[in-house]
């Protein structure tokens, strides 16, 4: 194992993304469909509300949706379920034999895959938004959205591993991914800006990590230049990473004790 195994694993996972071009095409088309659907909904909503909702114009909302979806679509949707299956099926026990961290290799693979898929999706999203509603509301906001997207995907992958580690203890934790993603959709701001939520739910949403996974880059891309959102993402990234590490360490110890 070289010292750079994490980077190598990421690169190799990224290369595998483009090996299956049909899957990339399906993902891109699906992304365009989702952005079209939700973008149409918000355009209809702003039309009915004098052209603006909670400080967002129709154009800002379209950029918001294009970015929030770009933060989610590149990822493996059923990652939690797949990790749960691997834990329950014994694949993790086999991975323990490798001279590298089980969690580290898995994180590198998923982050590499996610960031590679993000590149074409972000380009298509920017073109789609530019063609549909014009240039981004703020060039600086759009520029800040790029690192925010990278942080969002990384944070999401780590959080999903932390949640999926429940499968070390619970027999059937696979369906949890439904609930996880609904949290990302609503309190994470994927479907709607958090300012749309009622005040009490807004406070809850801002206190949860899900906003770092969709809201932060989308808020920046929609013209709100708030660089502190990147710091919030970094904070949640640290928390999610620590949680994943702690959960996998404890889970692996349990596997070794019980016998897998």
């Amino acid at each position: 194992m070289t010292r750079h195994w994490f980077a190598l694993t990421m690169r190799s996972a990224g290369q595998r993304v483009f090996a299956d071009r049909a899957a990339v095409l399906v993902k891109l088309t699906f992304y365009v469909i989702v952005v079209t659907a939700i973008g149409s909904l918000w355009r209809g909503a702003t039309d009915s509300n004098g052209g603006e909702i909670v400080g967002y114009t129709a154009a800002a909302l379209f950029w918001y949706v294009a970015t929030s979806e770009a933060a989610i679509v590149p990822l493996t949707m059923r990652m939690i379920e797949e990790i749960g299956d691997d834990i329950a099926g014994g694949a993790i026990a086999v991975e323990l034999l490798r001279p590298a961290s089980v969690l580290g290799v898995r994180l590198a693979t998923e982050i590499g895959r996610g960031l590679t898929a993000l590149a074409p999706i972000a380009v298509i999203g920017a073109v789609l938004a530019a063609v549909t509603v014009g240039a981004p509301p703020s060039a600086l906001g759009a520029a800040l959205a790029i690192p925010a997207l990278v942080l969002a995907i990384t944070c999401n992958v780590m959080a999903q591993h932390a949640v999926a580690a429940a499968a070390f203890w619970v027999r059937d934790a696979r369906s949890v991914w439904f609930i996880y993603y609904k949290c990302v959709f609503v309190v994470g701001g994927m479907l709607l800006p958090l300012q749309v939520l009622p005040d009490w739910l807004q406070s809850v949403a801002f206190a949860l990590p899900f906003s770092a996974m969709a809201y932060a880059p989308a808020r920046l891309a929609s013209g709100h230049v708030e660089p502190w959102l990147l710091l919030v993402q970094l904070g949640w990234l640290g928390v999610a990473g620590l949680a994943a590490w702690a959960a996998f360490s404890a889970g692996q110890r349990r596997l070794q004790v019980v016998g897998g």
Binding site: L41, G44, A45, D47, S48, I53, V54, L192, V196, P198
Partner: peptide, 11 residues
């Protein structure tokens, strides 16, 4: 529910 509470109705 949150959406329509904020925007009223859409088309």
């Amino acid at each position: 529910a949150i959406f329509f509470d904020r925007v009223g109705s859409v088309r």
